[in-house]
């Protein structure tokens, strides 16, 4: 059932990519580059059957993708896939520490806010989380560059110079991601603390600490898994805007450059790779959810949908 949904979404993704390719112009020109001579273009059209009915063309297209033929980037004339893959490590260097730091900050803060539900500390953290979700990453980046590079002169403003180059991009992304973790951890824990079983536990004389550790904490695990899975799912483009602001040569900044230069093949490749990892991550989050919490495996209505829906409420950039 869930695998079926994932496959269906993947199919729509392929259809969308095929459609964008078709809409962007003559595939022969796009795949071979604009400087190819007419005879080669004609031969290409013959070879790939561009006169065939649309569904046959689609089949040929998917067959090409399976054989890792993602077309050529017209800016570098090399395979688009190689270009994208060469940028992956730089993106990972930003995203992995970001996920680490945002969990380390966001989860304890959300947990602390939840067990002090309604008090001043809770209100302040909730407000900070709302603000964190409302601040666009590019503004945060620019403010940081202004303060730390121009005003104080402590950190290099862009590109990779030394380890200090990581501080601002990772810091700004972590701040936003930590707000997301804090918010969902809080709502998960508040929900379980309102459960009558907590009253029972209190009545039977369990210590506050034990209740928090044995009942509240495991429930905070659920949003943690989902958000982390979705964040890893979006790993390729998670940092797109931040990479652009800080002049970082990752997949995200490649995507933005390629859109500006209308380098269709590269945009396509990133769309397909990022889309596929996201679908996969969603699917795995779905599975692990049922694994961690057997109630979800048994019940027909998955609680994942709630978290995914809430997660989708975060800022789109």
């Amino acid at each position: 059932m869930r695998a079926g949904r994932a496959l269906l979404t993947l199919f729509v993704l392929l259809g969308f990519a095929f459609f964008t390719l078709a809409a962007s112009g003559d595939p022969a020109v796009i795949l071979l580059g604009p400087e190819t001579n007419t005879a080669a273009l004609e031969a290409f059209r013959q070879k790939w059957g561009l006169g065939l009915p649309l569904w046959r063309q689609f089949a040929v297209y998917v067959d090409g993708l399976v054989h890792l033929n993602f077309g050529l980037s017209y800016r570098t004339s090399g395979p688009a896939l190689d270009l994208v893959l060469s940028r992956v490590p730089a993106s990972l260097c930003l995203v992995v520490p970001t996920i680490f730091f945002s969990i380390a900050v966001g989860v304890p803060v959300g947990f602390y806010a939840a067990i002090h539900n309604g008090r001043m500390t809770d209100r302040i953290t909730t407000m900070l989380a709302v603000i964190g979700l409302a601040v666009p990453p590019f503004l945060l980046g620019i403010l940081l560059i202004y303060i730390f590079s121009i005003w104080l002169g402590w950190l290099p403003p862009s590109g990779y110079v030394d380890w200090r180059s990581y501080i601002m991009p990772v810091g700004s992304m972590s701040a936003v991601a930590a707000a997301i973790y804090a918010r969902f951890t809080r709502s998960a824990v508040v929900e379980v603390m309102a459960n009558p079983m907590i009253e029972t536990a209190k009545a039977s004389g369990l210590t506050r600490e034990l209740i928090h550790r044995a009942h509240a904490l495991p429930n905070a695990l659920l949003p943690l898994i989902t958000i982390t899975a979705l964040e890893f799912g979006g790993v390729l483009t998670f940092a797109a805007v931040t990479e652009n602001v800080f002049g970082w040569h990752g997949v995200g900044s490649l995507l933005i450059e390629s859109v500006a230069a209308r380098d269709y093949a590269v945009v396509e490749t990133i769309l397909l790779c990022a889309g596929t990892t996201m679908i996969l991550a969603n699917f795995l989050a779905d599975l692990s959810y049922g694994f961690v919490d057997p109630r979800i495996r048994d019940s027909r209505r998955s609680r994942l949908s709630t978290v995914t829906r809430l997660y989708a409420e975060k800022s789109p950039v």
Binding site: I256, G275, T308
Partner: peptide
């Protein structure tokens, strides 16, 4: 339903950039 799933799964920024490029 499938379209909604698709839109919810693929990061919005990428989808929008794909539309802009075509």
């Amino acid at each position: 339903g499938v379209l909604v799933d698709f839109q919810a799964t693929i990061p919005t920024l990428i989808l929008i950039l794909a539309f802009i490029v075509i």
